[in-house]
Amino acid sequence: MAIDPLSNARSERRWAFAMVGAAMMMLFAIVWASLSPHMNPPSNIENVDPNTLHIAGEFTEDNLGTQVDAKGRVTTRIVTSQFSFAPECVVVPQDMQVTFRFVSPDVIHGLLVVGTNINTMVVPGYVSQVHTMFDKPGDMLMPCHEFCGLGHSQMVAHVRVVPIADFKPDENGRVACAEH
């Protein structure tokens, strides 16, 4: 009898179990993705002083862009500031592990690479680090996605993914976009 309070509570309890079950299914899929194919938000608590990063250390001007180290690891360093990326174009190899490292000397910026899972905030005081791998070549857009002042709309960069055969580091291990 539907108007019996007990049966009422029973139908609600059944619904509640089904809903918690549905939520658990999604949770399971998310946790699996984070553990097995390593699809996580970028979390890397690493500090850098925003006021001195351009003077000394890893993020001085001639260290920016893509560099291959002695062990063959590819790292791309980018400084985001009002209202541009430095450099505005970076080259990365296809099908290889790439590590991006972003810093900001002024205010909060953020970025994504269109069509990929690369997305991070760039918070002054921190190094934002993203590991990824690109599976097809091409020029990809990398806009700033956090309001950083009145010039925010102009803040756009490009990521150029090239096949490994075309990825040729110079004697210092650096690779840069050709001038055009």
Binding site: E12, W15, A16, M19, V20, A22, A23, M24, M26, L27, I30, S34, N40, P41, P42, S43, N44, I45, E46, G110, N119, T120, M121, V122, V123, G125, Y126, V127, S128, Q129
Partner: peptide, 29 residues
């Protein structure tokens, strides 16, 4: 997507966020 928090606390709050969906789903019924 922020750099200043660890994976651990992000996941704890992610799990709690999944639970937030529950009262809305109860309301729907």
């Amino acid at each position: 997507m922020d750099p200043e928090h660890s994976t651990g606390f992000k996941s704890i709050q992610m799990i709690l966020t999944v639970l937030v969906a529950v009262p809305t789903l109860l309301t729907v019924f």
